[in-house]
């Protein structure tokens, strides 16, 4: 059952990320928002979560001046966020 996970905390919150990693399954989607977009600066994100499409909320990425050209992360608008919520059967908000 595909699940959308959202993460709004920065990489400083190690325990939260560990919980997410232990829960997320191949085919799920991860949306980074608020301080969660700082994960875009880490190359290891994509190695840790394989077969997971990762999005980052565009406005929050731009607000923090984060370059994402060289990452596999896709930018999402709030409309995309709404669509991802509806497309996935389940929703888990990590905070």
């Amino acid at each position: 059952m595909p699940t959308l996970h959202t993460l709004n905390r920065s990489p400083a919150n190690i325990q939260l990320f560990e919980q997410l990693i232990n829960t997320i399954r191949p085919g799920d989607t991860l949306l980074l928002l608020e301080d969660g977009v700082y994960y875009c600066l880490q190359n290891k994100l994509n190695r840790k979560i394989q077969d997971i499409q990762v999005y980052a909320l565009k406005d929050d990425v731009h607000a923090r001046g984060i370059p994402i050209e060289q990452s596999d992360v896709l930018l999402a608008s709030y409309e995309d966020f709404v669509n991802l919520t509806c497309e996935n059967d389940k929703l888990v908000n990590w905070y």
Binding site: N8, L33, E34, D59, Y78, E79, F81, V82, T85
Partner: peptide, 29 residues
């Protein structure tokens, strides 16, 4: 049919602002 839960206050977190933008986008869609 969507419901929104806001747990953070303005200035202490971005929750109220993010929820506002999400709600606007959901209604627009």
């Amino acid at each position: 049919k969507l419901s929104i839960l806001v747990l953070g206050s303005p200035y202490n977190s971005q929750a109220a602002y993010s929820a506002l933008r999400y709600t606007q986008a959901a209604l627009d869609s």
